[in-house]
Design a protein around this nucleic acid. Structure first.
Lengths: 107, 107
DNA sequence: CGACAATTTCGACCGGCGTCGTACAATGGA
DNA sequence: TCCATTGTACGACGCCGGTCGAAATTGTCG
């Protein structure tokens, strides 16, 4: 009981808070790019643990935080699990073609 | 004397040497993004000195070098002046929509 | 030739970021 | 109730990269 009411409210930037530079900075890291690619390929929500990345969990948390702040990823809490999804619609609306161009890249 | 430049041979990556991560890293800097925007807006070659950026000349050189190595900018030497242009066609071929998305961004 | 203009190179500084390990919190089951 | 699972918070460390100033290179014009 005694809910310490401390569960971190997951905040996401609104459309007008998302900047192209923030998005580019967030994507300009191999680990984060890998995460985005996996989310795009899965085309559904993925838990942190379902991501295949060459770093420790705490680092994953850090990267997901950056991706969320940049407006690229949305997070939804369910129990002890946090599901992450691509904000594809929002990104396409703001920067048409950007995400496609990135994902279509051979490398 | 038929001038065959003994100047620094300006090297540019070929299409298959350009990586999306390199491009994203290069674009993920406000100064470089400003340079790219100016080149895109001008739609022609621009000399270093014609760029409006809040840094020193030597820093501009550094940024242009990175943009060139990333495959975003092409350089052409003429006298003491170096003209820079966007490799728009190449980028569009590799990452269709990426450049447009970036340039169309409100901010 | 000599002065000037355009840009690069070099060296140095320093702040930020990616990384890890450990400790901690919340949840759901045995 | 105890514990396993899942993820976050925090502090520390090392390195990469953006910045500058000064010196060097190259070309142009008197």
């Amino acid at each position: 009981m005694a809910k310490t009411a401390a569960l971190p409210p997951i905040v996401h930037p609104t459309l007008d808070e998302i900047t192209v530079e923030g998005v580019l900075r967030a994507l300009a890291d191999p680990v984060r790019l890998g995460i985005v690619r996996q989310l795009a390929a899965a085309d559904r929500e993925l838990a942190c643990g379902a991501l295949t990345v060459p770093v420790t969990k705490s680092t994953i948390t850090h990267h997901l935080s950056i991706l969320r702040q940049a407006g690229i990823v949305a997070g939804r809490q369910e129990g002890t699990t946090r599901f992450n999804s691509l904000r594809r619609n929002d990104l396409d609306a703001l920067f048409p073609g950007l995400l496609n161009g990135v994902l279509a890249a051979p490398r």
